[in-house]
Nucleic acid binder design. Structure first.
Lengths: 242, 242
DNA sequence: GCAATAGTGTCTGTCAGACAATATGCC
DNA sequence: GGCATATTGTCTGACAGACACTATTGC
């Protein structure tokens, strides 16, 4: 750190949330319509400033999660990164710590204190540029989705999109929605079964809607998957070069 | 964001650097011995407060890299994460943005303005707890090393440890040192060759020390490796569960 | 029976790991 | 030649992707 006699600048610290969920087999993110300046009326990620000087950052994120998504039991929450370009906020130097939250299908949110409206928006709508976001929130959403995609490969994060008890085909729908790729149900079935500690069989081995009832599972103790799930590697072409 | 009339708290913003390099085939990290309170005399990561209110975070990290490691050409620098538990610094609420820097063998550093001493320390000395670090810097080093290990798999980061022109066995030493695993030279040779865009052949196909001269290469245009390098998967046992 | 979904078995190409064999330098 | 390192070739087991087939439900 630096010299003590020199006065270091202070900055405003915010947290923002990329809350992802699945609705009718598509990946959605929670957005709020801003009710205050700046960017009044624009869509933005839910978030807010640190509540008080001693509040923990993760605790602030959880608080916003409760306040803006009325969600008590937090399934998964992790730090995504810091976004703090000077000039990103006209109110002064604001540094925001973005967080990624994964949740099973949540109820339709209601507008909060600073938001004129709130709602689930399909992620592809945002990534394709059809919805414009305030601040640098487009980039944050992009980073959050990419993080979710890659964490699906190496961790049991996919189960966080599901209810506590789920079937393998439900889990498959999660992977298909987040990765945006169709998967072979039979190979998927074999794959997830072969990863030790990923899934635990649940009591009554039946349930479901139309055909043969499926066994039910719950998330196993292993959070880091080994061997990992791998994306089909179909497009080795368009992967980032340079 | 929140209500405008309410006064949001301000925090001190710092950057810290995990600068990794290879010295005699072992992974080292740059540490400085603190010359000021708090933790006077303790070893810590190089870093410092934001220079002025409008300084970009990455620019601040680059500045510290220059100042504390006397390094002009920055080979690789990326954000590692935010560390900001309340109480981690007695001077007040300090949020630090940790960065990961990878460099080829650097000269022995000299003590900077706030540092009584500076030096390269073997990473395993730190991870095994033989060296005690100030603040939460042990955790930051741990996260930085883990990030470097996993990025070696999916990106061309390994070449950032090498000089501009290098041989394949030199690159192999990088992988072995960072991963802490011996690798078969023949399979390694085939593997890196088979990844398109990873390596470019350099002009004079000769050089080296004792046996047959090796072809020389430089880093190719591809930064994301596909297919990825994979760690031998030897220990599926001790991977993190629960 | 038929439709629909769940779950199993088998084949095949690819690839990582083991390791033999060859090439090219220095002494 | 002898040693050391670089580079190529071959074999083998594991595994992902394709896909035929069986099982169990509702109608």
């Amino acid at each position: 750190m630096n010299d003590d006699r020199w006065e270091a600048p202070r900055v405003l610290l915010a947290v923002d949330l990329v809350i992802l969920t699945l609705r009718d087999s598509r990946l959605h993110v929670l957005l709020v319509q801003r009710g205050i300046e700046p960017f009044l009326g624009a869509w933005a990620l839910p978030g807010g400033f640190l509540g008080h000087e001693q509040e923990d950052i993760l605790a602030a994120a959880r608080r916003e999660l409760r306040e803006e998504a009325s969600l008590s039991a937090v399934p998964h929450l992790e730090q995504l990164g810091v976004y703090g370009e000077p000039g990103r906020d006209p109110r002064g130097r604001v540094i925001t710590v973005a967080h990624l939250a994964i949740a099973p299908r949540l109820p339709e949110p209601t507008a909060g204190t600073d938001a004129a409206a709130a709602g689930w928006t399909p992620v592809d709508q945002i990534l394709s540029g059809n919805v414009t976001l305030a601040f640098d929130h487009l980039r944050i959403v992009r980073d959050g989705v990419e993080r979710a995609r890659s964490k699906l490969e190496s961790s049991a994060l996919g189960t966080a999109f599901c209810t506590e008890v789920f079937t393998i085909s439900e889990l498959q729908q999660v992977y298909e929605a987040v990765w945006g790729t169709p998967l072979d149900p039979r190979n998927f079935y074999r794959k997830v079964q072969s990863i030790p500690g990923f899934l635990l069989e649940d009591g009554p081995p039946r349930r479901t809607g139309n055909g043969r009832p499926a066994k039910t599972y719950r998330s196993g103790p292993r959070h880091d998957l080994y061997p990992p799930m791998v994306r089909s590697a179909d497009g080795p072409a368009d992967r980032g070069a340079e």
